[in-house]
């Protein structure tokens, strides 16, 4: 579904932060990417999505080379992005935010019932200004906005950030259920092992701009020391 080869990327000119990333995720895979702050995780997400143009390397999505494509084309090919900080449109209503998930994609209808089935709170808050909701509700909106566009791959960046632990657990469980139901491929960038343990099957560690190893989640759960070692702490 997603193949990344030798990806080199950075902000601005010169210094590259990602120094040759290789990653693979097959259809239906649920892959987590873990690493310390400043290791280029968010940059990796932005580069995959097409917001940042890589200086070298290749990104293939669903068999098609998408390296250097604009974000809107990548999105229309079926990749949905839930960015760090959620980036919902705070001045828009919840409903308008959900509509944003489909209006750029020709041929899609606004299937609200499906989203409201998963996240009933969004139905309740339909007319509310999205910026006034709590962190957890905004995260559900951001995920709902991504899913309403019927993606093949869901790319999440720090979905647990700024959300209280019980809600993180709930969102993780729900995401796992949805992905299983829909056969979605998931790539989640995360520091919170709670989220990773529930949602992902394997974890790739990133350090100094390179993937340093891949470990199945069950193994990490059994031996928490592995995480500290892989994250270079």
């Amino acid at each position: 579904m997603l193949e990344i080869e030798g990806l080199i990327s950075g902000y601005g000119k010169g210094a590259s932060v990602l120094k040759g990333i290789d990653l693979k995720a097959a259809k239906g895979d649920r892959l987590a990417i873990m690493g310390r702050n400043g290791m280029g995780k968010t940059l990796l997400a932005k580069t995959i999505m097409g917001l940042v143009r890589p200086s070298a390397g290749k990104v293939k999505f669903d068999g098609i080379d998408i390296t250097g494509q604009h974000a809107h084309s990548v999105s229309n090919m079926g990749m949905a992005y839930v960015p760090q900080g959620r980036e919902i449109f705070g001045d828009f209503t919840v409903l308008e935010n959900l509509r944003m998930g489909v209006i750029g994609k020709p041929g899609l209808t606004l299937d609200l019932d499906r989203i409201y089935g998963w996240f009933p709170i969004l139905k309740e808050r339909e007319r509310q200004r999205a910026g006034t909701m709590s962190g957890g509700q905004m995260q559900q909106l951001a995920i709902g906005r991504a899913l309403i566009g019927r993606p093949k791959l869901l790319l999440l960046d720090e979905p647990s950030e700024g959300i209280q632990p019980s809600i993180v657990h709930e969102i993780a469980e729900k995401l796992r259920m949805i992905c299983a139901e829909e056969g979605l491929t998931v790539i989640v960038i995360e520091q919170n092992f709670d989220m990773v343990e529930i949602l992902a099957e394997r974890v790739a560690f990133i350090e100094n701009g390179k993937i340093t190893g891949e470990v199945p989640v069950v193994q990490l759960a059994a031996d928490p020391d592995l995480i500290t070692r892989h994250m270079g702490l």
């Binding site: 604009h70 974000a71 809107h72 999105s75 992005y81 960015p83 980036e87 944003m100 994609k105 906005r145």
Partner: peptide, 9 residues
Amino acid sequence: PMAQCLGIN
């Protein structure tokens, strides 16, 4: 950028 990521040209 977010609008782009939602498929808006």
